[in-house]
Write a protein that binds this DNA or RNA. Structure first.
Length: 272
DNA sequence: AGCGGAACCTGTCGGC
DNA sequence: TGCCGACAGGTTCCGC
């Protein structure tokens, strides 16, 4: 479900809603998404603590606790957080609820249950987080960095963009949008980009993500923010989900292809 | 080392 | 109406 802009929206709201509020109760309704063996241990660690920092790395959300423990959450396809000022009925797909001393609560909701929650001790990291590439909205993401990652990479460019070890935070929707904006064919081999293509790609990645962020992310079906509101960027998509419709730039029909079993949308005449 | 494809889950939609 | 396959914003695992 959520890619970098959506996760950023969620993190910003979570900071506003739950930062520094003491947790009084945790209700785990479905245990298998917690990677710990023992959910009772999870509850024991969380109770009587507050989140002292909440931030994002790629699509991961990290909640830092007072004692240094970290709650790492990945929403995968359908995970979402929903905040309520008062206790609210538990939905069929509500997986875990955090209750705070001010009477508010935070529901972790996940229809497909592919999301992941893990509590890790102070100063530990998980492998997938430590392997993450540069965040495109951070100063680490330079043209030189991107060029280095593209060198020697045999992946088709669409698959390069989805590889979180290369660039952290791009997902299937924004990959198509970024390639369209860059005017590059999705099946171009990463290592073979010309200098001007690298320039265009380097510009397009943060531009597309920032614009999506300004419009509160993209809601195709499931995505909602912490207040259960939809994003608006679906109204500004140029190619994603537009198979058979005219290209906004040249009018040719938008095509769809499968790469690594996932759909890519593009314009054959604009993207060479 | 790195690749493609299946697996993980649940729901929706379109075709027959 | 019912069944079946395809597909969904993501990552990880497995076998080559």
């Amino acid at each position: 479900m959520p890619e970098l802009p959506e996760v950023q929206v969620i993190v910003t709201q979570l900071r506003d809603k739950v930062l520094h509020k003491k947790i009084v109760r945790v209700e785990i309704l479905r245990t298998d998404q917690w990677l710990q063996n023992d959910p009772a241990q999870v509850v024991k660690i969380l109770i009587n603590q507050a989140f002292v920092d909440i931030y994002r790395k790629g699509k991961y959300i990290i909640f830092r606790l007072e004692d240094g423990f970290q709650l790492i959450v990945h929403l995968r396809m359908t995970g979402k957080f929903c905040w309520h000022p008062k206790p609210t009925r538990i939905d069929k797909h509500t997986r875990t609820v955090f209750y705070f001393t001010d009477g508010s609560c935070l529901h972790y909701h996940d229809l497909r249950a592919l999301g992941m929650l893990i509590l890790i001790p102070p100063n530990e990291e998980i492998k997938s987080l430590s392997q993450l590439g540069a965040d495109p909205l951070s100063p680490q993401f330079t043209r030189e960095y991107l060029w280095q990652k593209l060198q020697g990479c045999k992946l088709e460019l669409k698959d390069f963009l989805l590889d979180q070890k290369k660039v952290a935070g791009v997902g299937n929707i924004y990959a198509s949008e970024i390639l369209f904006r860059s005017s590059i064919h999705p099946q171009t081999k990463s290592f073979s980009l010309s200098p001007s293509q690298v320039d265009r790609l380097y510009q397009a990645i943060p531009q597309v993500l920032r614009e999506a962020l300004v419009h509160s992310g993209t809601t195709i079906s499931n995505y909602r923010n912490v207040d259960d509101l939809e994003g608006e960027f679906q109204n500004f998509l140029q190619v994603y989900g537009k198979e058979g419709q005219p290209c906004p730039r040249c009018g040719q029909v938008i095509k769809r292809l499968k790469q690594k079993n996932r759909s890519t949308f593009f314009c054959e005449s604009c993207q060479k």
